[in-house]
């Protein structure tokens, strides 16, 4: 399975990653190699096999009681924020 520059650019866009021009060629090669290696999966006969999403087969989701356990700590949590004003996170304008 090979990928081209366009594929890399599309994936990088979908994943919101800026790539420098010179990085793109490297990713064309290495992602192509990885996908080739991953292509070995085609060797496996998986007809009728259930996909395995969790290593804990047979366990079900636990349910939490509907209780408010959290206090307002936005001041602390926003200490890591690059830009905050009046308790709000600020980003370049969202166009709708």
């Amino acid at each position: 399975m090979s990928v081209n520059r366009k594929d890399i650019e599309n994936i990088a866009h979908l994943a919101r990653l800026s790539l420098r021009e010179e990085e793109v060629a490297g990713y064309v090669e290495t992602l192509g190699n990885i996908l080739d290696m991953v292509g070995q999966l085609d060797r496996a006969e998986t007809g009728g096999i259930e996909p395995m999403a969790h290593p804990l087969a047979g366990l079900a989701q636990r349910l939490r009681a509907d209780e408010v356990t959290e206090a307002d700590r936005h001041g602390l949590y926003q200490q890591n924020a690059p830009r905050v004003e009046a308790g709000l996170y600020i980003v370049p304008r969202v166009i709708e």
Binding site: V3, D7, I8, I11, A12, L14, A15, L17, L19, E23, Y27, T30, L31, I34, L35, V38, L41, D42, A44, T46, I49, E50, P51, M52, A53
Partner: peptide
């Protein structure tokens, strides 16, 4: 990290999910 994010984005994206992701989940079962 970028390489893995892109690999993951690729295998989950439309048209590749079954061939890669679901296939891998089945082999994981095996």
């Amino acid at each position: 990290v970028k390489r893995r994010i892109m690999t993951g984005t690729y295998v989950l994206s439309a048209g590749y999910y079954d061939a890669y992701y679901l296939k891998a989940q089945r082999v994981r079962q095996l």
